[in-house]
Amino acid sequence: MKFSIYRYHPEHDTTPSMQAMELADALIKPGMMLLDALLLLKAQDESLTFRRSCGEGVCGSDGMNINGRNALACITPLAGLKTPIEVRPMPGLPVIRDLVVDLEPFYRQYRAVTPYLINHDPEPEVERRQSPAEREQLDGLYECILCACCTTSCPSYWWNPDKFLGPAALLQSWRFLADSRDQATDERLADLDGPFKLFRCHTIMNCVEVCPKGLNPTRAIGRIKELMLKRST
């Protein structure tokens, strides 16, 4: 099986390049994921660098661009991928080395939405309770694993990475706006004001297309706009 892998080592290379690599067919097992193949390729050339951890689509470490589409290598089956399989780092973020990108700009936007519960009431002796209906509002939001597949596939984020918060951060913004226990709705909405942070989303929906957890940041962004409208009238 043939691969074309993005290689860039800033200490040696002036420009990135695509390296052709190959795995013997005997090494390819049924049901094998791309991450397994990358590990075999790394055994051939140990300088090949990529992030990985759980290998089960839970940690979100191995987000990469596979044949032009962002995905997690550990849950992307080799079967069905067009060869040579082209593997690149996720677009829109600085490359540290090979398939490893600097996620700091992504985390900066995530931190900007204060992704934690803000509640000024005295801390209760037991947990802050929700009704089942209130808890249900968080379904499809809390499952985000921050793999950055969505944000780095968003053209609006590519054009304004320092100003547009991006789909992952906005999904988390709605996650706390939708939380019945949170008391900072006005502050959160005020923080999202301006033409860039929220309103650069043009409903392109690449984020929905690539989310490995099947989440829908576009819908969350729409809900934020609806809430803004309700609170401003």
Partner: peptide
């Protein structure tokens, strides 16, 4: 419309 109007208006 009193708050959050700037970006919402467009």
């Amino acid at each position: 419309m009193s708050r959050h109007t700037y970006a919402l208006r467009a």
